[in-house]
Design a protein around this nucleic acid. Structure first.
Length: 389
RNA sequence: GCGACGGUAGCUCAGCGGUAGAGCCCUCGGUUGUGGUCCGAGUGGUCGUGGGUUCGAGACCCAUCCGUCGCC
């Protein structure tokens, strides 16, 4: 059992605390993705310094390498990777979709052909839960099928009902311990009737939290938000709600306004590795030639090391030269940016100012990046140059 | 000096009689429970130079320049 306490609400948005065996999580929360027992390019203490309180691991990837026995033998995922805080593990359900070409789906479970060595691995609801126990996940996710997009209503219903049968098996296989929770996952694609049926089905079993899965898979933000509008009200108010795999800052802000408490997404980390930086005014591609001589920091008001100590020109150079410090610095910045956004959302909900916060957020994003250094006085420009030589 | 091989996009090269191509680079776009990926679009060439043969030459012939290697 994990414990969830609501501290404040503002409209449908909620401010809460989720307490786990390895510590509390302030919600709404963004969880950086650390698939292979690492948030790529970041030391655990650096991840924590960005404000993250919980990270993700992945059952499928850790099952293949290094294997659950090795992780368990080294004291679980927390000890293995030296992340003392809470960890949520994805069950492998996303890989049922993303690795569709490498697996066979049956009622009992899914047989994967390893992308590493071609070996065969049968993942069932029971085995996924057992592995997540071995990993010592604070939050275990039900093994499901992330329904691909697009899906007809018939396909979505078959997929969702399979996930619901699996959810029951996960519930039975999960060993209840204080501070450890099991989350169910609502499926049903974009069809409100199926989402309702799925939520009902999960509520009968009873979970420590409820995830909304199968979104942000190509349907677009408008359909995703419509689906949330139809789904979130069917979930209990006294348990956390987790929108899986989402998203961009604007997705997160709008989902928080609809009552979502938890998010995870590869966006800040993957984008950080490929040169896309997030700012209040939208994204900036640091590989673009226009940054080659720009002395300004990526974001003027950001407190991360990339913005405090380095110019856009330097970050641009690192990416063009394929130096590893580029992805490290930009991942650091992006994670900081996402965590700052979450802190802002939490404060706004507490103060009952979410509408104002969102209005400001959308105004800033609408302005876009400023193309050239804005009317710097010569002496200020020189100072900026000097600080980056 | 002689001989062989080579000179086609910024780079590495394919094309050897019929509308000049690929990969990389470069300029951009995409990436939503992560295979450090991957996908997509675009810029870019008087085919070393000068003649010739041919309806048509990057390709065949002659000359010439440059490069690499080998031999005197």
């Amino acid at each position: 059992m994990t414990e969830f306490r609501l501290l404040a609400t503002d409209g449908l948005a909620r401010r809460g605390i989720l307490t786990t065996a390895h510590g509390p999580i302030q919600t709404p929360a963004f969880m950086p993705v650390g698939t292979q027992a690492t948030v790529k390019g970041m030391l655990p203490e650096q991840v924590a310094a960005t404000g993250a309180e919980i990270i993700l691991g992945n059952t499928y990837h850790l099952m293949l390498r290094p294997g659950p026995d090795i992780v368990a033998g080294l004291g679980g995922l927390h000890h293995f990777m030296n992340w003392p805080g809470p960890i949520l593990t994805d069950s492998g359900g996303f890989q049922v979709m993303s690795l569709a070409g490498l697996r066979k789906l049956e009622e009992s479970g899914v047989t994967f052909r390893s992308h590493l060595d071609g070996s065969s691995h049968h993942l069932t609801p029971e085995r996924s839960i057992a592995i997540q126990h071995q990993l010592d996940a604070d939050i275990t996710m039900c093994f499901d099928e992330c329904t691909p997009w697009p899906a007809t209503e018939t396909q979505a219903a078959l997929s969702m009902r399979l996930s619901m049968r699996w959810a029951r098996r996960c519930r039975e296989a999960f060993i209840n311990r204080p501070g450890y929770g099991l989350f169910g996952i609502v499926q049903g694609s974009i069809y409100p009737m199926l989402r309702e049926e799925s939520a009902d089905s999960l509520l009968r079993e009873g979970f420590d939290g409820y995830a909304v899965g199968g979104l942000a898979v190509g349907e677009g933000q408008e359909l995703m938000l419509k689906t949330l509008d139809a789904t979130v009200p069917m979930l209990p108010t006294n348990k956390p709600r987790y929108l899986m795999g989402v998203g961009r800052p604007s997705d997160i802000v709008r989902a928080v306004a609809r009552g979502i408490d938890m998010f995870d997404c590869v966006m800040p980390t993957r984008s950080g590795r490929t040169g896309q930086g997030f700012t209040r005014r939208g994204t900036i591609n640091l590989r673009n030639a226009r940054h080659a001589a720009d002395p300004r920091p990526l974001a003027q008001d950001c407190h991360c090391p990339a913005c405090r100590s380095h110019s856009r020109a330097y970050l641009h150079h690192l990416f063009k030269a394929q130096e590893m410090l580029g992805p490290i610095l930009l991942t650091w910045h992006n994670l900081t940016h996402f965590q700052d956004l979450m802190a802002g959302l939490r404060a706004a909900i507490t103060e009952g100012q979410l509408a104002t916060f969102i209005a400001n957020f959308e105004r800033d994003e609408g302005e876009g990046d400023i193309e050239t250094a804005p009317n710097l006085a010569p002496d200020i420009a020189i100072n900026l140059d000097a600080s980056h030589v």
